[in-house]
């Protein structure tokens, strides 16, 4: 099967001044297949959000190739490719409070993409599409006439998901989409995303710093550190057999809701100041499991 998204050696630098450049992403490669979920984890500043934003072309990548749907989307985009990209790749943002326009009704927030792409014949069809999508994300069609401030945080994130889904995208980039929500609501949203995936077979790039949630939703996981992909593999492999010391350290930091175990557990510190990732290469552990090593 052809991968839906292929990221090859992606580099993203930000020039701050003449002598100073932030190298946010340094040669990251991974693939996402249709209908699967790829989780990207790492601490803040590791470049996970930057990767998501480069892929959806909010930034212009400094180097490397991004192949989406068999089209190269890393260079200048012609009009046709751009339309294809905008329609088939959508994003869910972190903060449901600030990512919805407070002056627009829910129907218009969700319908904006439909309007741009003329995806309906008449107003009745538009309303129908919106009502359907609201039902799919667990809201009622009557909510279409409301404004964002009339919803709770969990409901607003559902609107964000509906907005991404309405275009029938092939890939959804979910950037920390549950970290601003309460624990009991997080589970609701993650379950909803799984149900939607089962129904529509869209793929997710799930970006998060919470490893335990990532485990629930991802088929495969990539661990990022300082802009390098240090380990990637099936979700099971990463959790049962972490190889890279950074992954081990990350796993040891996830708190477990069990006092007897948690009070005894030691956090493994990983000091990376002497490690030069630039000269490391990916080593194969198994068919699907790779680790960055000297």
């Amino acid at each position: 099967m052809n991968p839906l998204l292929k990221v090859k050696n992606l580099r993203q630098y930000f020039k701050i001044s003449r002598n100073f450049t932030v190298k946010a992403v340094n040669g990251v490669s991974f693939e996402i297949f249709p209908g699967e979920t790829y989780g990207l984890v790492g601490e803040s500043g590791s470049g996970k959000t930057t990767i998501g934003r480069s892929i959806i072309r909010l930034y212009d990548p400094t180097g490397g190739e991004i192949i989406f749907n068999d089209k190269n989307i890393s260079g200048n985009l012609d009009k046709k490719t751009n339309r294809m990209l905008r329609k088939n790749m959508q994003m869910i943002f972190q903060d449901p409070m600030s990512s919805l326009n407070p002056r627009k009704k829910i129907a218009d927030i969700i319908g904006e993409g439909l309007d741009i792409y003329h995806s309906y014949k008449n107003l009745r069809e538009r309303n129908e599409i919106i009502a359907n999508i609201l039902q799919k994300v667990g809201l009622s069609p009557a909510h279409a006439e409301r404004y964002p401030h009339q919803f709770s945080g969990g409901q607003r994130q559902r609107v964000g998901i509906a907005r991404a889904l309405v275009m029938n995208p092939k890939l959804i980039i979910a950037d920390e989409c549950i970290s601003a929500l309460d624990v009991s609501i997080q589970a609701q949203v993650v379950n909803l995303m799984k149900d939607i995936q089962a129904e529509t077979t869209c793929a997710y790039l799930f970006i998060a710093h919470d490893l335990s949630m990532v485990k629930y939703i991802s088929d495969r996981i990539g661990v990022l550190h300082r802009g390098y992909l240090v380990e990637t593999g099936l979700s099971k492999e990463i959790f049962s057999n972490p190889v890279h010391p950074y992954t081990k350290s990350l796993l040891s930091a996830v708190p477990i809701p069990n006092p007897a175990v948690e009070k005894q557990r030691k956090f493994l510190n990983y000091d990376s100041s002497n490690v030069d990732y630039e000269h490391c290469t990916m080593k194969k552990i198994s068919e699907t499991h790779f680790v960055l090593e000297n």
Binding site: S184, A187, N191, S212, Y216, L251, I256
Partner: peptide, 16 residues
Amino acid sequence: AMPDLETDDDRLYSIP
């Protein structure tokens, strides 16, 4: 609702 690292369950319980 707390994700558990030890199970292979792929569904989380959520409080409605």
